[in-house]
Simulated scan of single mutants.
Amino acid sequence: MIRRTLASAILFKSSRIISKDIPPAVYKVFNTEFNPEEQEAYKTYWIKNRRVIVLDQSDRENPRYRWAMARFRRLVLGASWLGMILLEPTLLEADFPKAVNLQKRRKLVPR
């Protein structure tokens, strides 16, 4: 008898188990050092976005903590690629067509 969860099998007239087709994960940790300018940029970005769990008081009788997902996303993107810190204002810009035109002319971010 094979025990499996419903989500791990293809149920259309098949006994194939999805997890057998997924290769094992390979994790690598890369330690890199910021130069002083990058360190200062990330530190400023971190201070601005570090509060990712906030108290939501929109329901006064039932206040609860929630994830501030926009800030969390910014931290993940900023930590993944420092260039995102520079691009973020243009990506969140209300006038997106203007940002696209600047990108086409290669003037989206300063060199």
Rank of each mutant, 00 (worst) to 15 (best):
F12Q: 05
P97N: 12
R64W: 11
A70N: 03
K98H: 09
Q103M: 08
T90Q: 06
W81N: 15
G83I: 02
R64S: 05
R51Q: 14
T90P: 06
R66K: 13
P36A: 09
V54D: 00
S19N: 03
V76C: 05
K107C: 01
R51G: 04
Y65T: 05
E61R: 06
R3K: 15
L86D: 13
Q103P: 06
R16C: 03
E33P: 03
S19C: 05
F34H: 07
Q57I: 14
A9V: 09
K104C: 00
G78L: 01
P63Q: 04
Q103S: 11
E93Y: 14
G78E: 11
Y27G: 04
T32C: 01
K43F: 06
S80Y: 12
I53F: 09
M69V: 13
K13H: 12
L75Q: 03
T44K: 09
R73D: 11
F96R: 08
E38C: 03
I85Q: 07
A9S: 09
F30C: 10
L91H: 01
R105P: 07
N101I: 05
P89E: 07
D95I: 00
L87Y: 13
E61W: 15
F12H: 06
I85Y: 00
S58H: 09
W81C: 06
A99I: 02
A25F: 07
V54N: 01
D59K: 09
L75T: 04
W46V: 08
R73G: 11
R50E: 01
F12P: 12
R74C: 09
S58R: 15
K107S: 13
N49K: 12
N62F: 02
R74Q: 14
E38M: 02
F72L: 13
S58T: 08
K20Y: 01
L82W: 01
F72R: 12
I47V: 15
R71N: 13
W81M: 11
K48T: 12
R60T: 14
W46N: 04
A70I: 07
A9E: 03
W67A: 10
V109T: 08
P97K: 05
L6T: 13
V100L: 06
N49H: 13
K13T: 14
V109E: 07
P36Y: 14
P97G: 05
G83S: 03
M84D: 11
N35T: 05
R51T: 15
A25K: 15
Y27R: 11
E33Y: 02
L75S: 09
R74L: 04
Y42N: 13
Y27A: 01
E33L: 08
K43S: 08
F72E: 07
M1N: 06
R106C: 00
P23R: 15
R50C: 00
E33M: 11
K48V: 04
T5L: 02
K107Y: 01
N62W: 08
R64P: 04
L11G: 07
K48C: 01
Q103A: 12
R105A: 15
D21C: 03
Y65A: 13
A25V: 02
K13S: 05
P89R: 08
L82D: 10
I2S: 12
I53V: 10
R3E: 10
